[in-house]
Nucleic acid binder design. Structure first.
Lengths: 231, 231
DNA sequence: CAATAAATTAGACAGTTGGGTAATGGATTA
DNA sequence: TAATCCATTACCCAACTGTCTAATTTATTG
């Protein structure tokens, strides 16, 4: 039952990898895990960003494994500098955190993949292969979060399609404002204060939002709004 | 520590897949390519979105392969409706185009992966495996484009951060159950009825959920849960 | 101009929510 | 065994929610 799925075992030269990681033990672990694969070759290792950048410049590796929590220059800065050097090395960001801003920052600063450190070593090899071909790969723990950070686009009429508009919700502009505050968890009183109207007004808006969205309470409205990218 | 080699070859039941694709020939191709793998099982196929949604509702598959260019209701609408049904099926968007808006629209509408149709069949199987575990996988042809669409964040001083791991939420199993009901908009009374406990219990759980998630009310909890993919 | 829709305000009311505090039994762990 | 954590129940209370009815003002549109 074990035959097909190695998409990478071709005859071409192995994927060259550089590891930038401050913990010696993790470094060794990464090297061993990756070098166990015939098609992957760890060509160098660095324990800080400065050294890492030098090695990257020298070796021009296919893939860079970059720890984000480095002493001195952090991994994200390092990635930016790396991209400025203009090789087409692909970068895998590696951390143990799953903070939203960090994930986004890494991915917008040059990383093609984001892995948490507890990834299975064999899986990591797969990711290295994927990323070397240009794939964007994001760890399950942060995937949803990342996808939710993408800008919402009005899907209606995106594809040659007509019949759809009926399901849509025709909220007024004011109601949209209210909805945004509602989604951010504000109470009617807070919404009223924010929009400089009376609580009665805020309540009235919320009420008509609920009816237009066909839901029973503000929680459902908020969830629906988030899920459908209305906000 | 870990003897697994191929992340998929375990003894657990195969990954169930539903294919929604209008071209018969492509459908056959997809089915054959996937069914060639012991750990993947194509349980149904549909040639349009309406039929697809019915099948999805019936089978609750692990993974859905969704063509975006369907006649009638398009794939993106179908994904939205699919997400509304609230199973945790993962969706792979499949098209032959690489239009930016379409990619983003797909990923924000519920897709966990975006594949172009000329993908290697074995690679597709890998993607199915990855996606079934929650990975976000984006085809090389559109990966860079997608990453560029992420909101830019000011990286300065992003990382000097260690104390943050506390932000993570260690909800108990019971609390997770309650959270799910909460997200679906149920009141404490309804949650209590659902879990066959008293309202007091439900309230207690909700209360500790709010504290653990560091939010002030159930709306914020629901939104956070949805945004971070906790449910 | 008249009709329609949106935004605003108000009072009232039953029901829900979230915070405290406190007690009990069961399970796991030190 | 003792200490902890979890699930469960209970009561109180201030605050908030959602619905109703009803009225005024401003735009927009036929």
């Amino acid at each position: 039952m074990n035959m097909v799925q190695k998409t990478a075992e071709t005859q071409t030269k192995p994927i060259s990898v550089i590891i930038v990681e401050d913990f010696k033990l993790t470094r060794v672990g990464l090297r061993c895990a990756l070098n166990a694969n015939d098609d992957i070759n760890v060509v160098a290792e660095a324990e800080d960003a400065v050294e890492g950048l030098k090695l990257i410049e020298r070796h021009k590796p296919d893939v860079i494994l970059m720890d984000l929590g480095l002493p001195g220059m952090n991994g994200i800065e390092a990635m930016v500098k790396c991209k400025e050097m203009n090789f087409d090395s692909k970068i895998i960001a590696l951390t143990s955190h799953d903070r939203c801003e960090e994930v986004i920052a890494a991915l917008t600063s040059g990383a093609s993949a984001y892995c948490l450190k507890d990834i299975d070593p064999n899986k990591l090899a797969d990711v290295v292969r994927d990323v070397s071909t240009g794939v964007c790969w994001i760890d399950p723990m942060v995937a949803q979060m990342t996808l939710n950070s993408l800008p919402k686009i009005d899907n209606a009429g995106l594809l040659p399609n007509k019949s759809n508009n009926e399901g849509r919700v025709p909220l007024t502009e004011r109601e949209f404002e209210v909805l945004k505050h509602l989604v951010s968890g504000k109470s009617n009183t807070e919404i009223a204060k924010e929009l400089i109207v009376s609580v009665h007004t805020a309540k009235a808006h919320v009420c008509s939002i609920l009816q237009k969205m066909c839901v029973n309470d503000r929680v459902q409205a908020a969830v629906k709004a988030v899920k459908e990218g209305m906000v």
